[in-house]
Structures are given as C-alpha cells and as structure tokens.
Design a protein around this nucleic acid. Sequence first.
DNA 1: GTTAGCATGTAAGGAGTTACATGATTTT
DNA 2: AAAATCATGTAACTCCTTACATGCTAAC
Lengths: 198, 198
Amino acid sequence: MAQAVKRSGRSGVLELAVLGLLHESPMHGYELSKRLNTMLGAFRAFSYGSLYPCLKQMLALGHVSADGESTGSRSKIVYRLTADGKEHLQNLLGEAGPSSWEDENFGVHFAFFSQTDAEVRMRILEGRRSRLEERLDNVKTSVARTRERVDSYTLELQRHGLESVEREVRWLTELIETERRADTASSGTSSVASATNV
Amino acid sequence: MAQAVKRSGRSGVLELAVLGLLHESPMHGYELSKRLNTMLGAFRAFSYGSLYPCLKQMLALGHVSADGESTGSRSKIVYRLTADGKEHLQNLLGEAGPSSWEDENFGVHFAFFSQTDAEVRMRILEGRRSRLEERLDNVKTSVARTRERVDSYTLELQRHGLESVEREVRWLTELIETERRADTASSGTSSVASATNV
DNA sequence: GTTAGCATGTAAGGAGTTACATGATTTT
DNA sequence: AAAATCATGTAACTCCTTACATGCTAAC
C-alpha cells in the first residue's frame, strides 16, 4: 500500500542539527560532534557511527560540500553548507508539527531558535507545552484510577516524574511569555529577539 | 571474536518491566500496557508493537505461561510468571551494571526497587548519580572551553538542561541518604525506606 | 616513547515505532 | 446505532549504537 517516498538514508534530528551548526560556520566532522554534544549535552548525544554516515548522505544529496583541508598531511574534511542545504535547512526550521515537540526532537529545534521564525518558535513552544500537559493529565488520571496501592518506590518515581514535567511546563510558560512580550514590544520583529545576554 | 549468545528476540528494559509487573499479579497484555504507562508515564511509553512481540518471545522462552480467560467469548490472554520466569526476574533485578543506570533503563529498575536487594539498589542509585555528575562535568568543561559566544536560546537550553540534571542529582542524593539511614537504623531491613514525602 | 586526543570511517545489529489489520464490548 | 475503548497481533521500517578498523599528532 504505502507508496511512501523511499528515503534512502538517515534523517531525523541529526540532519537538522548538522545543517544548523554548519550554517553558523563550516566545520569538520569531529568538531561538529563536539559542538553537538556541548550544545545538547544534557539531553542527547550522537555517536560517530551516526554522524559520519549522515554527513556522507548529505553530501550525496548536495546539501553540503566537502573540502579537504590539508594542514600538513592531516586529513580533515571541512563541510560547508551549499545553497540547496540552506534551503533545506529553512524548510526544516519552518516545520512546526508534532515531531518538532517530541522529547527527542524538541531540544534540537530549540537550539536553533535564533535561526527560526518567531511564529514557528511560538507554535513549537506551545505544542511542546500541550504535549506535556496532556501527558500530565494522562498519568494523573490513570494514577487516580489505580485502586491498588503501589509501593513507595513506584510512588516516588511517579512523584519525581510529574514534578519534572511540571517544571518543564513552567519553564515553557515563562519562555512563551517572554516571546509574547518581545513580539508586542517591537511589533514586526521576525528576527532574533535581541537579548544575546540573558 | 564475539561468541556472544545470540539472543533470538527482543530484550531490553521491556522484558524486566513485564516480568516485574507479572510478579505482582497475572495480567493480560492490554492491562500490562496500561499499568506500564501509568508507572513510567512521565519517562517512557511502550507501544503494543513492542509489548506483544515481547510477550510472545517470553512465552517461547518459558518465562511466562498463557491462559485464555474466556469471560463470554472475549479472547483475553492472561499471562502468568513461571518458575523460570521468576528466576530470570531475580537475575535481572540483581544486575547493577551501567545499563541499569542509563536514561532509558534507570526508571524501570527504580520502579521495581521494592523487589530489589538493598545493596543492588544502592549501587544503582550511586551509579546513576556518578553517570549524571560525569555528564555535568563534560558539559560544563566544554561549555567553558567554548570561546565563541553562543546565542541566547542555546544558552537557555544549556542552562535548563544543567539545572534538570542537577535537580536529579539532588534527588538521588536524598534517596541515597534515606537508604543509608534505613540501613543503619534497622540493620538488615531490605524493604522499602518510607519517606514518601520529600 | 607512550598515552591521550584528534580525525575518519564501516558493518552488523538492537530496540522500538508506525501503520496496518481485525474484531468484541461497553458507553452514550 | 455510533463512538469509544477493550483486546490482540504483524510487517516494514527508522534511527541510532556498538564494536571494529585505522592512522596522525600533541603533550608529558
């Protein structure tokens, strides 16, 4: 049935992350990997086993170009965004659907918010918040419905889990308010909301 | 080289989760799924597409037995832990290696702490804490090393990420202290350590 | 001169999801 | 009698990891 487009290689968040980083400046794989893990450190980590094949695929697709930078005889491959790559990045940055606010993807999308349109930012932040609130609701409902007494560890896990999610919701709410204020203050500012220093 | 045991089917945390829940009482798949997602709600969710194949495999391995409960003509399959399954569960609960404190697995191990030996509990809690502290260290180091100024969103993401991890570390530290107190107070008490309210 | 870090890659596989497929039973 | 939810399952696929394989270069 599914006549889905046969996507030949990798995709997912890594692609966005790589394009986003390369948009800031050209880099080679190893450096990309480190910047990535610094940026997302607390949330995710990518291994070379996924990064290099991803670069390879993006090269094949023409989204990046590779220049062999020979300082001495050291084989470094510097990747650079092509025009096609920039276009593709814009498309990815413009996506504000469910996948952009799922656990695995949200962090990466957020990391490139300064390159993202204000409207899209807002939709992603709100999408993520509803997603989390929905989750809170589900868990609370089913916990309430559970007649059987659970042991203290399970309880403690649930408590900590709920608190973590509630904390993220508060964080998102603050961000959303900040965004709204910035939007009303300078009506029409579609670019980065100033405040490079927080 | 690796003459590793060729594990024929699924494994991972789901197996432990299923065995742990079935140890409390026999259940059918659908119910198992709901209990699972109530228990872990905030952390993880498993879909039927992984639960049912897992049950199938466990049946094949003889870790569970299946009784068709026919209330009316409704085809429910009630799964029950076998002696082998109980033994296997004990083995899994006894594992206190790195995999038990990784993000994806820790929650499940913790959820069954009331069925886990006090020593193992302690090793898992401490293992998880070191893991997180190591991560904090890595990120902080590489953030400090980063000369280039990052934009405010990236900064905010890092800040929130670090804070979340630090929060979990504090939580773990409290749990560890509670465990220690319980251990010294009633030497030999392998059961739950009260303190549901933090 | 050896350890640690820089640098690039590949093959095999693990763990789970998505979408599909089906039907019974309860609630509204 | 329609909609929700209970209930079970499979095939194809995705995305990423692990372990392997290799060699250079800087620091101690």
